[in-house]
Design a protein around this nucleic acid. Sequence first.
DNA 1: GTACCTGCAAACTTTTTGCTACCGA
DNA 2: TCGGTAGCAAAAAGTTTGCAGGTAC
Lengths: 140, 140
Amino acid sequence: MTDTIIDRCEAKGLRMTGQRRVIAQVMEDAKDHPDAEEIYARATTIDAAISLATVYRTVKLFDEIGILERLEFGDGRSRFEDADRPHHDHLFDLRTGEVIEFVDPEMEILQEKIARKLGYTLKGHKMELFGVPLDKDSDA
Amino acid sequence: MTDTIIDRCEAKGLRMTGQRRVIAQVMEDAKDHPDAEEIYARATTIDAAISLATVYRTVKLFDEIGILERLEFGDGRSRFEDADRPHHDHLFDLRTGEVIEFVDPEMEILQEKIARKLGYTLKGHKMELFGVPLDKDSDA
DNA sequence: GTACCTGCAAACTTTTTGCTACCGA
DNA sequence: TCGGTAGCAAAAAGTTTGCAGGTAC
């Protein structure tokens, strides 16, 4: 659990190229939910010799083997986060695109209960709430 | 509440062209969540003189004025449904792309409570659960 | 009559992929 | 060594848009 992303890649037997190490480090350091373009921007500040195609290939690979988690909020871009973090849900601000993380034990239980009732098992980012700010100008 | 989509378009003062009437009728009849391509396919069986661009423009317009609701499950396509229906949430089958509707009163309350606590108001399709089927071969 | 709408094709955005050269184990 | 990997550019897939002609009101 205290392993870094690079440690986990090695444990999975991935060939660790310079590019993969850089992308892994960028995601290790990320405290937010960057999309491919943003990961690319951060990666190239460490090593300019990384292409956007490699970022796409790498985050796809990392997602498939469970190193990263892909988040989709319906704005056309995938965002990514370290998959090895305590469970949490996300609220997506439709106005600004900001992602707010939260944990609610009641919600955890209810999600599972509803999914079970429908014959499903939840997977990945279990829930997304789409919200607009509670301000007086809100059209919500 | 018993108004048709066409009625609501007229009430909003929209210019009702033949194409808009057809698309409105397609959505009125839809019991599922068609994407633009599917709406286009259904529309052209009624009137072949409708272009995909018009479908895109029309569903975008209808969404913006609250006639239709846009659903996004992260598979790259937007799906649409009549916005004037009792509230419900969606579960999206990651394996098949199927959309399952459900209503849970506890969930309704909890959603609002969590959003409020975070300083938000929920809007649109409030919650999406992403699930995989509960079978023994499941990798969930 | 006029502002709005449509079809067509081109443009755009995000993501994937074919190909050739390269590099890690 | 040699199969997986990277860069580049082209392709995909979904959606939007500029323009010229057409239509609802």
